[in-house]
């Protein structure tokens, strides 16, 4: 509906953002692609030239690769199941009338605003420490001889718990918002029909939440593939590292740019599989 003048102006208004975003998204990717085929180690500047597919070959053969890939998938899968199931429950709970709803809502949403480095260290030390931590204290109170050494024995689970704690409020907040858009009349009608709570949940609420749940799953997947600070700061990269951490350590510890770039490309491919679906869902909802 806009006039030609406005449209011409609009192009100039849009161009800077497109330019910087294009540069940001394509240049590093192209360079990563390029580095992935080079022999390029920061400690060994004389060893140069094309590497062919050997970076990929060695990256895939790295004993950490399969382990870290498995860790990545376990983390993403486990955290998503926890947060979505917990999120649905919390959303249903917060949708009920009760005293102090506003305050409880604030309490529940809080973990999402906590810096990842803070939550990692607080959980690792104050809560999960095998001797002085709160969990150990509780165990001892109930008469246990020796408390669980969370990060020593279950590093992956521990990271999973911390990240779940951070993302549970996210799922709950999104699903609550979706739940509140459910028509009051529909709820009333179901109540008038005498629908029992279970079938009301099964036939009204769950179908209504199916799309928001999909969105939560996709967005969480994209962010959870990139869990980094929680692993780095709690120093469990050797046991519970994921792909992102592996790329980091190839660059930082092994100083092998070529291998790290190959790993980066694997991460990109993995993330792209998810973002294709996410973009499609977002696209359907976008009025532009």
């Amino acid at each position: 509906m806009a006039t030609k003048q406005a449209q011409a102006l609009g192009k100039w208004a849009l161009a800077p953002s497109v330019a910087v975003l294009a540069a940001w998204s394509f240049v590093p990717l192209a360079l990563t692609l390029y580095f992935a085929f080079l022999r390029y180690n920061l400690q060994d500047p004389d060893n140069t030239g094309w590497a062919g597919f050997s970076n990929f070959y060695y990256f895939f053969k790295d004993p950490y690769f399969l382990k870290d890939l498995a860790n990545t998938l376990l983390l993403v899968g486990g955290i998503i199941i926890t947060t979505v199931v917990g999120g649905v429950f919390l959303a249903l709970l917060l949708d009920q009338p009760f005293w102090g709803r506003g305050i409880v809502r604030l309490l529940m949403i809080s973990p999402f605003f906590i810096m990842p480095t803070v939550s990692s260290l607080v959980w690792k030390n104050l809560l999960m420490h095998p001797v002085f931590g709160l969990f150990a204290g509780i165990q001892k109170y109930f008469g246990a001889q020796e408390a669980i050494d969370w990060f020593g024995r279950y590093p992956l689970l521990s990271v999973g718990i911390i990240v779940s704690w951070q993302w549970l409020p996210y799922a709950a907040l999104i699903l609550l918002t979706a739940l509140q858009s459910l028509d009051e009349e529909q709820k009333d009608a179901a109540a008038m029909d005498g629908a029992p709570a279970i079938s009301f949940f099964r036939y009204i609420i769950l179908p209504h939440l199916s799309r928001p749940i999909t969105v939560v799953i996709l967005i969480e997947t994209i962010f959870l593939l990139n869990i980094f600070a929680e692993i780095k700061v709690t120093s469990v990269g050797g046991f519970a590292g994921n792909l992102t951490y592996l790329v980091f350590s190839q660059l930082n510890d092994a100083t092998d740019v070529g291998m790290a770039a190959a790993g980066g490309l694997v991460a990109v491919v993995l993330a792209n599989i998810v973002s294709v679906f996410l973009v499609r869902i977002v696209g359907k909802n976008l009025e532009a």
């Binding site: 849009l14 161009a15 953002s17 497109v18 975003l21 294009a22 940001w24 998204s25 240049v27 590093p28 990717l29 360079l31 990563t32 580095f35 994209i222 593939l225 990139n226 980094f228 792909l243 992102t244 790329v247 980091f248 660059l251 740019v257 790290a260 770039a261 790993g263 980066g264 490309l265 991460a267 990109v268 993995l270 993330a271 792209n272 998810v274 973002s275 996410l278 973009v279 977002v282 696209g283 976008l286 532009a288």
Partner: peptide, 26 residues
């Protein structure tokens, strides 16, 4: 740049979905 508005927005959002590991090295 040749996207229409709808696809332009989706493209912009998709840049947010790129994993940082893919851009970290360069």
């Amino acid at each position: 740049w040749s996207r229409n508005t709808h696809n332009m927005l989706l493209w912009m959002l998709s840049t947010k979905m790129m994993p940082p590991a893919g851009a970290l090295i360069p």
